[in-house]
């Protein structure tokens, strides 16, 4: 499907990443991730043909991207970018209709096939009820879905998305990722997206392209976790990935106080988090024990009804 051969990317003479040999298959949902400034956007922009590779070659379905005409390129991949679309008086339908650009005649008039494709794309992102709304009347999450619908209407085997979840709140971020997951299964398309959302990427991606200072590590999320590649790439003193569930955990500053927590979940779970946040260490051999039972905490033989109160008692 998509393949890069000895690809060098960067600006001017400075290569940000060199000698990349990556490939993507049909139906893949690939998350491109890495620290800020590691070259995610550069790679994505290069794949999208928005900037030239310094060296090497990108092929889609065996055809070299650099040799394609603008038209051929626009039928092979579509883009979802971080560029803001602030045009006045543009409806969701108008925006998605622009995705049909490569297929319409010189006047840009829409055929029945085009209209059907537009309606289908809008339906796929669940925006049918907003078809004739103006872009400045809908929320940021809906706007992002509209842009994704535009990419779908362009009817390309490959969709490139640059930080599609940036600037969105958590429910919308999850929604967009689930949407992409569903689309990659239903539409046979390949999705490549850059993202900072490690937790979401780990749970959704078929494959991760993990950018580290030396190059790009490729693999399924679980293998990359298991081999510690993630910790390596995001290597930092301030957090680590939990060995139990793979979620990222912050390394808190620790104080001298030790506490033992016993009892029922989830009360113990949240109590433990609160203690860690305040720099109180957990240890089974500690002299202070807190027991959680029936929504009540027992500390120094008195009942305490909230975690906030426990913290107050311990800190004094």
């Amino acid at each position: 499907m998509l393949r890069t051969n000895n690809l060098y990317i960067g600006y001017g003479r400075r290569a940000v990443k060199s000698d990349l040999n990556l490939h993507a298959n049909a139906r893949d949902l690939i998350c491109l991730t890495g620290t800020n400034g590691c070259g995610k956007s550069t790679l994505l922009r290069t794949l999208a043909g928005l900037q030239k590779p310094l060296k090497g070659d990108i092929t889609i379905q065996g055809k070299s991207v650099q040799k394609l005409s603008n038209y051929e390129r626009s039928t092979l991949f579509s883009l979802v970018l971080t560029d803001s679309i602030d045009t006045e008086n543009l409806t969701v339908h108008d925006l998605v209709a622009l995705g049909r650009f490569p297929y319409t005649n010189w006047a840009g008039s829409l055929s029945d096939t085009d209209e059907a494709k537009i309606a289908e794309s809008i339906h796929q992102v669940n925006l049918t009820h907003k078809t004739h709304c103006y872009l400045n009347e809908i929320s940021d999450g809906e706007k992002q879905r509209a842009v994704i619908a535009k990419a779908l209407a362009q009817d390309t085997p490959l969709v490139l998305l640059d930080e599609p979840t940036a600037h969105l709140d958590l429910p919308n971020r999850v929604e967009i990722m689930l949407l992409l997951r569903r689309l990659s299964v239903n539409t046979q398309k390949t999705f490549i997206l850059s993202t900072h959302e490690l937790d979401l990427a780990l749970q959704m991606a078929d494959k991760i392209w993990l950018m580290n200072p030396n190059g790009v590590e490729v693999g399924i999320p679980e293998d990359l976790m298991l081999t510690g590649k993630f910790q390596e790439a995001f290597g930092s003193h301030s957090f680590q990935f939990d060995e139990n569930d793979g979620h990222c955990k912050i390394n808190h500053l620790v104080g001298p106080l030790h506490v033992n927590v016993i009892g029922e979940k989830p009360a113990t779970l949240w109590l433990q988090r609160a203690l860690l946040r305040c720099g109180i260490q957990l240890s089974e051999s500690a002299s202070i024990t807190i027991e959680a039972h029936d929504g009540v905490f027992r500390l120094h033989n008195t009942d305490v009804h909230s975690i906030e109160e426990i913290l107050k008692i311990l800190m004094d």
Binding site: L50, S78, L79, D83, I85, L98, F101, A107, G108, Q154
Partner: peptide, 23 residues
């Protein structure tokens, strides 16, 4: 009038326009 289609593409900004196959 002959470039009105490309003009519509440009409404989304130059990067998107390029993605739509506009020179």
């Amino acid at each position: 009038l002959t470039i009105q289609k490309s003009l519509n593409g440009l409404l989304l900004g130059e990067n998107y326009a390029q993605g739509l196959g506009i020179s």
